[in-house]
């Protein structure tokens, strides 16, 4: 399996704070990969670098072998990488269906985008199918702000699927979600993965990560500690150290 999206020797400093020092990660095409690490280890920063929200101070991000280190978020999405956010972000004053339609832009000219009605019949049908897929089709006409926390997570995932991205980066998809919805989410991810989608998931929920991921990368203090199968990671003493606090960790 070849790497679909990868980070190589990536570093990022915010002023004097070195959020990432040396981070390498490779997500094989068709896999579900996990990214774990203690709070503040740089997981979200790495996501931001990979999706164009932040510029890496050094190193390179590649998608299918092409560098996307300097691409904007719009561009990264157009190239087929969708992401969700740690704190769910939706268009809260738009309806659930409208949220879905935002991502349906094709590469049409500006004038057409002004003159055409948002969401052709085919796009609406597709959007409703995807809402059905995540179990939200009954709520299509409701404002997104009325959804429960778990439903928001599902909708956020569904809005990405509209554009049919090759890779989905999910930032803590199970945080604050009840167990029933977590199971539903796991099932959806498995199903999408079987259909060929590649996932990179940041998670604190170890049960979720270990049950779902083919490969797990551990970040610690801005560095990749190791990459391996869930079993390898679970057995590694360095990982336990990082999580439980070793000699001179996290004591600021």
């Amino acid at each position: 399996m070849s790497a679909l999206i990868e980070a190589e020797g990536v570093g990022k400093a915010f002023g004097g704070l070195q959020a990432l020092t040396d981070c390498s990660l490779s997500v094989a095409e068709g896999s579900v990969s996990g990214l774990i690490g203690p709070n503040g280890s740089g997981k979200t920063t790495l996501f931001n670098l990979m999706t164009g929200y932040e510029r890496a101070s050094r190193g390179e991000i590649r998608l299918g072998g092409e560098s996307i280190t300097r691409a904007t978020p719009e561009r990264v999405f157009a190239l087929g990488v969708g992401r969700t956010f740690q704190i769910t972000r939706l268009f809260f004053r738009l309806t659930v269906l409208e949220n879905m339609l935002v991502a349906t832009q094709r590469h049409e000219g500006w004038l057409r985008s002004v003159l055409r009605v948002a969401g052709s019949a085919a796009e609406r049908v597709r959007a409703l199918e995807l809402l059905e897929f995540v179990g939200l089709s009954g709520l299509a006409a409701r404002p997104a702000g009325e959804l429960s926390y778990g439903q928001r997570k599902l909708l956020e995932l569904a809005t990405l699927l509209v554009a049919d991205p090759a890779v989905l980066l999910l930032d803590e998809p199970t945080a604050g979600v009840n167990p029933t919805l977590i199971n539903q989410l796991t099932e959806r991810i498995r199903e999408l993965n079987r259909a060929g989608k590649t996932f990179l998931v940041v998670e604190h929920n170890m049960e979720f990560v270990m049950g779902l991921c083919h490969q797990v990368t551990v970040l610690h203090q801005g560095r990749t500690l190791l990459t391996g199968t869930p079993e390898q990671v679970r057995a590694d003493p360095a990982v336990l150290d990082a999580y439980l606090g070793g000699a001179d960790d996290d004591d600021l």
Binding site: L94, S113, V114
Partner: peptide
């Protein structure tokens, strides 16, 4: 025309969350 168009929907998405709109490919 703008209100009912895709362009109008993109504007509304910018109002609600510009960063997220970028993440969904809206050329803000």
């Amino acid at each position: 025309l703008v209100r009912r168009s895709r362009f109008g929907l993109q504007l509304l998405s910018i109002r609600d969350d510009e960063e997220r709109a970028r993440g969904l490919g809206v050329r803000v």
